[in-house]
């Protein structure tokens, strides 16, 4: 696979603040590359440097072989952009917005085709103002795809949307990739990154703290599985603790066990059964990307 984006030592300073601090990565053709991290981590600044909307303080960037600062207009013919919280004038009609943006590019996809793809065909004559939050984002996606771009940037595409609309957006991101495009997805929503991205860069305080596939990142952290349950008699904890490869924490009657593999789960249930111990609310969960962030940075990622 050839890289469509390469970034080396990208730094963006605002005064003494290093919003982006020595970031390097490559994005390969036709992957969905996630940039995740808390608000203010430098995600948007990073992609805006790639899009040529911001000028880096130092470092080098190549997108589709072009340098965003020097070849901005050429590059923007080839990429699609959806901005975080980006909106359009209240009184512009859906099809007018599409026609307007289509006029900017040397090649463009027919408006009807795009509207059908994002499910807005029956809204073509509606004002932007009258669209729902999800429909507004669909229009942003359509506008990002109007020039049939090779690389598409989605920045906080689903923030503020209800779960149903969010799922619809995920479908559109996947179909964008299936259409052969490379997707850069910026999000602070870990579940989204985990479900959609082929590879994820976790960003914190302007630096990439981890970069791999979601599965590898999750595997990389200790205590792969987490078992939670409640007991009436917490005396059982001492016996459970003797299971090999298990880390137990008990608070009152709630017991949490972290372990590497599923054999421990069987072992726990056997001990509980042998001791005739009453237990309830028994759950086994795999860690998520969210736990990876917590384990690497020691911080919770929250809106």
């Amino acid at each position: 696979m050839r890289p469509v984006i390469t970034v080396k030592d990208l730094t963006k300073k605002y005064g003494s603040l290093r919003a982006v601090d020595g970031v390097s990565f490559a994005v390969y053709e036709n992957e969905i590359f996630g940039i995740v991290g808390p608000n203010g981590a430098g995600k948007t600044t990073t992609v805006e440097c790639l899009e040529g909307l911001r000028v880096p303080s130092s470092g080098s960037i190549r997108v589709l072989g072009l340098e965003p600062k020097a070849d901005g207009y050429k590059l923007r013919q080839l990429i699609g952009i959806q901005l975080q919280e980006g909106k359009f004038p209240d009184r512009i009609k859906v099809k007018e917005a599409l026609e307007l943006f289509a006029s900017f590019y040397s090649r463009s996809v027919p408006a009807g085709h795009l509207l059908e793809k994002v499910g807005l065909l029956d809204k073509a004559d509606d004002y932007f103002d009258n669209l729902s939050g999800g429909q507004k984002q669909r229009l942003s996606i359509a506008l990002a795809l109007v020039n049939d771009p090779q690389v598409v940037f989605f920045d906080e595409l689903t923030t503020g949307l209800d779960p149903q609309a969010r799922r619809a957006m995920w479908g559109m991101v996947r179909s964008t990739r299936e259409a052969g495009k490379t997707v850069i997805l910026v999000t602070h929503f870990m579940e989204e990154a985990e479900r959609l991205c082929d590879r994820v860069a976790i960003v914190d305080q302007g630096k990439i703290v981890a970069l791999d596939t979601p599965a590898n990142l999750i595997r990389s952290i200790d205590g792969g599985l987490r078992i939670n349950f409640s007991v009436n008699d917490s005396g059982i904890a001492a016996q459970l603790e003797s299971i090999e490869g298990c880390r137990l924490t008990a608070s009152n009657r709630d017991i949490t066990i972290q372990c590497a593999d599923y054999r421990v789960v069987g072992e726990v249930i056997r001990i509980l059964g042998e001791n005739d111990c009453d237990f309830h609310d028994f759950t086994v969960s795999k860690p998520a990307l969210e736990d990876v962030f917590l384990s690497i940075t020691g911080k919770e990622i929250r809106e």
Partner: peptide
């Protein structure tokens, strides 16, 4: 509404 920025993000 970042429309100016969106325009700037196109050619």
């Amino acid at each position: 509404i970042k429309f100016l920025k969106r325009l700037k993000g196109s050619p």
